[in-house]
């Protein structure tokens, strides 16, 4: 089979400027990768800088460096280089994961930071060596038979730029609107009530209330021991999205036929049981299988 698009390929020597530019780019890659690893190793807080650097140091730079080792500059077009960089980054992450899993330290943040930095740096060194080697006799992918220039009206470029800016603005606005819309989706509020026995002491229990009603709520809590009032709490104020827990202790463990019932009331409907839980003995018995 004939080489691909042979008519578009020029048998041109490697331009010196291109060689220097590609070396400079490899230095930038190492610099960015180092900065990203430094942020992780120093436990930098979540910030746009850490997100941006971390994302490209994981999903772009390692693959770019490896692609430069495998395929020299000028042999693939920009879109293909992007494709190779992203896909090889994904694949390098997979390989790195197996390497980290094999280490006694396991798959940790520090391990990732060091391994990705090391992988990127080694690939950059190899790519630099490759770019210094004499050029192979194979042709570089530089188009020579460019299509004739298309005459555009004077308004073409300004309109293109305007549309591009509007597109970016609209896209960002749409994403923000989409997130806000989901955050403000109306859902019925709810309150959680639970009771759990203590793991070791059968006389101790924990009662919890979680308020997700969308507003602060005032509750009243009543505990019945075998249908007899045992304890009660009035005026419990739980702030929205907060949970409160309280311990409960019995004099002796629940017997076989005994139960503990907890009823929660809202202060705005004080006679209507709002939530109810009930526990018999050994409620959280462990499996013996």
């Amino acid at each position: 089979m004939m080489p691909r698009e042979d008519d578009l390929i020029a048998r041109t020597p490697w331009p010196r400027g291109m060689q220097l530019g590609s070396l400079l780019l490899l230095h930038v890659v190492v610099g960015l990768s180092t900065a990203a690893a430094w942020l992780v190793l120093h436990d930098a807080p979540l910030s746009p800088l850490r997100i941006g650097l971390g994302a490209i140091a994981t999903l772009l730079l390692p693959g770019y460096a490896l692609s430069r080792v495998l395929i020299a500059v000028g042999r693939v077009q920009l879109a293909e280089r992007l494709l190779l960089s992203l896909s090889l980054s994904l694949l390098l992450c997979m390989a790195t994961m197996f390497f980290l899993n094999w280490l006694p330290t396991g798959i940790s943040a520090y391990g990732w930071a060091r391994a990705l930095w090391l992988g990127t740096a080694v690939c950059c060194v190899l790519a630099s060596v490759r770019s210094l080697l004499p050029i192979a006799d194979a042709p570089l992918l530089l188009p020579t038979t460019v299509a004739p220039p298309v005459l555009r009206p004077r308004w073409y470029l300004p309109v293109q730029l305007l549309c591009a800016f509007l597109t970016i603005g609209l896209l960002l606005g749409t994403i923000v609107l989409g997130i806000r819309s989901a955050q403000q989706q109306p859902y019925p509020g709810f309150t959680q009530l639970w009771i759990l026995p203590a793991p070791t002491d059968p006389t101790r229990f924990e009662i919890g209330i979680g308020n997700f009603e969308g507003t602060d709520v005032r509750y009243r809590l009543e505990v019945d021991y075998n249908d007899r009032a045992h304890a009660h709490w009035s005026q419990i104020v739980v702030r929205d999205t907060e949970t409160v827990t309280t311990p409960l202790r019995l004099r002796e463990p629940l017997a076989r036929n005994e139960q503990l019932t907890v009823v929660l009331y809202r202060q705005d409907a004080p006679t209507q049981a709002y939530r109810q839980v009930r526990i018999w003995r050994n409620a959280l018995q462990e499996s013996d299988m």
């Binding site: 959680q192 018999w280 003995r281 050994n282 959280l284």
Partner: peptide, 25 residues
């Protein structure tokens, strides 16, 4: 013997192991 340990209005969680082992009435 089946304990009702969680109630959030629409969702309720019951425990059944003690009941199945006749460890509760």
């Amino acid at each position: 013997g089946v304990s009702r340990i969680y109630d959030s209005g629409n969702l309720v969680i019951y425990t059944v192991r003690a009941w199945s082992n006749n460890d509760a009435p």
